[in-house]
Design a protein around this nucleic acid. Structure first.
Length: 270
DNA sequence: CGAGGGACCTGGTTGC
DNA sequence: TGCAACCAGGTCCCTC
């Protein structure tokens, strides 16, 4: 399931094949993604890609005529293949580039999207209200603490809210809370500024580390070369319910929070 | 405004 | 063995 490190890994992986290259052909095999792939995406044909950027978990392919806005959803990946490579089931959209490679969106669960924007991307409804990037200025413990005021929902939900900070999905929310020693069910508004400093630092650390390792491998994720990441072997919390805590060796507890698997150490997290 | 739950979707796993 | 039920979960959207 692509989270921010996986999307960033993908962005870096496709950069050489896409940036400054011309889109020779746009093919849509399945329009029914999270939102229908617009017919206007055809206008990308003939355009040169001037930038490949990321906002949260969205990838943006900029051209002079507009911007492709891509989200990988839960099961999506972008792959680079040679022209003529047989299409796999669930290869929904492909861009043929003059770099000699074809960029394919593969997304079995179709939670992703492939939109075409002709207005400034930052003003698009999907991007306009997003919170700060966790690895850039504007995100720190002070930001979290200010926003936390008056909120009673569990802190895990809080840090997974893209209006608060982008890019923290279920896996890294579990991991960051473990590292910061904060109980995932603790009320958002009942956490000190100092502890929010620790949490913000933990979020930055874990995301930075995961990017450095090429993203997490869980189920479907593969990078643009079709290779898995290697971070999964080092997770402390996610997927470790019932297993010994890496700090105190007591069993990790697993509960469901908003339908999401939530794993923590009752001893180490308060 | 915040909180909570439904909806979307398919492959893999589990259970009968 | 075969089939049904369930689970994974990012994000938007609706309701309270």
């Amino acid at each position: 399931m692509p989270e921010l490190p996986e999307v960033e890994t993908t962005r870096r992986g496709i950069l050489d094949a896409v940036l400054h290259h011309r889109v020779l052909n746009v093919q849509v095999h399945e329009r029914r993604l999270r939102w229908p792939v617009p017919a206007e995406l055809a206008r990308m044909q003939g355009q040169r890609v001037t930038a490949v950027t990321r906002r949260g978990k969205y990838l943006l392919l900029h051209t002079g005529a507009g911007t492709a806005l891509v989200h990988l959803g839960m099961s999506g990946s972008l792959r680079l293949v040679s022209p003529g490579t047989p299409r796999k089931t669930h290869d929904h959209v492909e861009l043929t580039l003059d770099s000699g490679l074809v960029l394919r969106l593969h997304d079995p669960r179709r939670f992703g999207c492939f939109l075409w924007l002709t207005t400034p991307p930052d003003e698009h409804p999907l991007l306009a209200d997003l919170g700060p990037e966790p690895l850039e200025d504007g995100f720190d413990g002070g930001w979290l603490h200010r926003l936390s005021h008056g909120r009673s929902a569990p802190v895990k939900n809080f840090i997974m809210d893209s209006h608060v900070v982008v890019g923290v999905g279920n896996i890294y929310a579990n991991e960051a809370l473990f590292r910061a020693g904060i109980h995932p069910l603790r009320a958002t508004g009942r956490i000190s500024a100092a502890r929010y400093d620790s949490l913000a630092q933990a979020i930055r650390d874990i995301l930075t580390y995961a990017i450095g390792r090429g993203g997490t491998t869980l189920r479907d994720f593969v990078n643009s070369q079709g290779e898995p990441g290697y971070f999964q072997l080092e997770l402390d919390a996610y997927g470790r319910g019932g297993e010994p805590c890496h700090h105190c060796q007591r069993p990790m507890k697993e509960v469901r929070l908003g339908g999401r698997s939530t794993v923590f150490c009752p001893q180490c997290q308060h």
